[in-house]
Amino acid sequence: MIVAERKPFDEISDLLAGYDKVLTVGCKTCVAVCLAGGEKEAALLNKELMLARKVAGKPVETCAALVERQCDMEFLAELDDIVDQYDAIVSMACGAGVQFMAERYPTKPVLPGVNTTFIGVNRDVGWYEEKCRSCGNCLLGVTGGICPITMCAKSLMNGPCGGTNQTSCEINKDQPCAWYAIYQRLAGQDRLDNILKMTEIMDWRNNVPRTIVQPGYEQRKAAFSDK
């Protein structure tokens, strides 16, 4: 899932200076699971905002809404009827959701309520770890299911580097060395030959905004473009 962190209150408060009617929209998917931008977090932000603005003598009217997935126009459309009543929208979704919301309501200021941090896993409640950089050229098949692009601090493809500290990464003793782990896992599966050959220079595909149109939908996309 996509993992995000709530932005510091002061930063959100600064972004909202001058707006007196604010719609805060949570997202029910990834950011709700990681406790950053779901229903509860949207309500909590509104409470903080109202209190701070009341104390400052500049009261604000807020409303909290919740959308199934802000990365989906169909669900954003549910807000169409209420958006006009507000001066600004805070989207608690990931960066994709914020941008889609801003695209749907181009005349409204749409402001981010969270910092989108990474694609990761739910290790435990409140504990998430990054696992994927979406490089677009997955190496996991040869690296024992451990991503060197994400988990190695230098994204080495022929590691480990000389900074391996026992079994840790040179940046931090608490950070396991990805290549140590790759080596151990492949050795355990008798697949070390996977990494004995040099991995060629990467063809990075995440340098431009990427679009995927599955073959079955090409005509649909063409129809959209004609509109």
Partner: peptide, 28 residues
């Protein structure tokens, strides 16, 4: 060389490039 990680130096917020790794650089 790969190079020491940015975090060791006095510009820890620098973006590490690591477009190629040291073995690939040799090959290049």
């Amino acid at each position: 060389l790969s190079g020491d990680h940015m975090q060791f130096g006095d510009h820890p917020g620098a973006k590490g490039v690591f477009d190629v790794d040291s073995t690939q650089l040799i090959h290049m």
